[in-house]
Design a protein around this nucleic acid. Structure first.
Lengths: 231, 231
DNA sequence: TTTTATTGTGACACTATTGTTACATGCTAG
DNA sequence: CTAGCATGTAACAATAGTGTCACAATAAAA
């Protein structure tokens, strides 16, 4: 499904844009570029990139100013933004975050780091409100009332299965290793056998029943995945 | 019906208030602003906003402290509060929720996310009639006469059980931890064992009898919930 | 097909959580 | 003061949830 994500790179220095673009394209992203804030603004509006890499220092309008403007416009308000800054000043980080920036990277950075952050931000951006109920094919999980229902019929889950399902429903279409699941669902520093995950997966599937257990998919040699699409 | 909702934004930094206000006004909300907790408290009292967006970090009185105070005052106790926090610390989330905060958002956030959460909280918020009797499945609690009846037959409750039931009936379908219940029903700064809650839950259930005790549901590993829907 | 690696399943011991009861303390009305 | 609630705690009982293991089933590799 995932049509490659479109990333807008905004920086007044061509070589840097170049380097970033190469790195991102290697990682399977589509890139468009702008060398000033005005042009960038126009591009955002009509190309609707999935995310923006924005240099802090630019002639005329600073990156931060552009970020603010984008945030105020309803149509561009929720495009994730990563700021690039040559300075390590905490101050910048703070101002940036306050302006609604999703992450920032200090130059110099490795392409690999860039891609990692970018993925993280995109991942976070897609499934939003952590406190909102999620529904998939009639299966609903409401974190507030702490309840799970399948077509309005309640489903009983133990605490671990609940957290597991919650994690899956907010991180769909992505395979996780047992180790990752232990980190994310059990919490980083516990020691349990990885096979324990299998058992809880089993319990979760059983609780979901035949109507929904296909959502929890085995990815052989890797781990598990939650998805509406057939394996 | 819905005259536009009035939202109080409390943050000591003007640009942030600005940004939020713009987003909310675009979404059809009326905004009032305060840059410190004292002013905010006054505004709450005489403007009676429908909900409050509260920054965690502020000079003099922290947001969390303000939240606590508002919760303790009967007239402001049920105004929904969303906390804004720059930190991702789990600790803050917990403290916030314990203080009776309805939701919290980690900065940076997109305006869209903000509006989404806000809508969700308003939707869940208790309709304000603090003085109105509440009825659920023939179980009625009248705060004026301070009486509880099941199908017109009186039910005897101790003061604590009464407050507990009142809290539950005005905050249905939401799981609360023992700590939260102690804060909300016992009042913030008492030290009692969390297990005490269990005992009062037991007394409440017993008093409700077989016809209504299913309304008080235990949420294993979390706490309790009051709901007409079966677990 | 046979072999090997990986995952599914049920059972079991162990732990953690919750229910229940009894009791001590403190408070209040008379 | 004292009888009668209301509360908070502790102790114990009853349940529910967890992690591991052994073995079965299945998929991939040879």
């Amino acid at each position: 499904m995932s049509a490659s994500k479109k990333v807008l790179i905004v920086d007044d220095e061509a070589p840097i844009r170049e380097m970033i673009a190469v790195a991102l394209e290697m990682a399977g992203y589509e890139c468009i570029e702008a060398d000033n804030a005005q042009e960038a603004h126009a591009l955002v509006v009509d190309q609707k990139p999935d995310m923006i890499l924005l240099d802090w220092m630019m002639p005329n309008m600073s990156g931060i100013e552009l970020a603010r403007r984008l945030r105020k416009d309803e149509t561009t308000a929720d495009v994730p933004i990563i700021m690039l800054t040559a300075k390590t000043e905490e101050e910048h980080k703070v101002k940036g975050l306050e302006a609604g920036v999703d992450d920032y990277i200090t130059k110099p950075f490795s392409p690999r780091e860039l891609v990692a952050r970018l993925k993280a931000v995109l991942r976070r951006a897609t499934p939003k409100g952590i406190e909102e109920p999620v529904t998939v094919e009639g299966l609903t999980l409401d974190p507030i009332s702490h309840r799970v229902t399948a077509n309005d019929k309640p489903i009983e889950l133990g605490p671990t299965e609940f957290r597991l399902l919650q994690f899956f429903m907010t991180h769909q279409d992505r395979a996780y290793s047992r180790g990752q699941l232990l980190d994310m669902v059990w919490g980083g520093n516990v020691y349990v056998e990885e096979r324990t995950v299998d058992v809880h997966i089993r319990r979760l599937r059983k609780a979901l029943g035949s109507q929904h257990d296909h959502l929890v998919q085995t990815v052989r040699g890797t781990g598990y995945r939650f998805s509406t699409q057939v394996a």
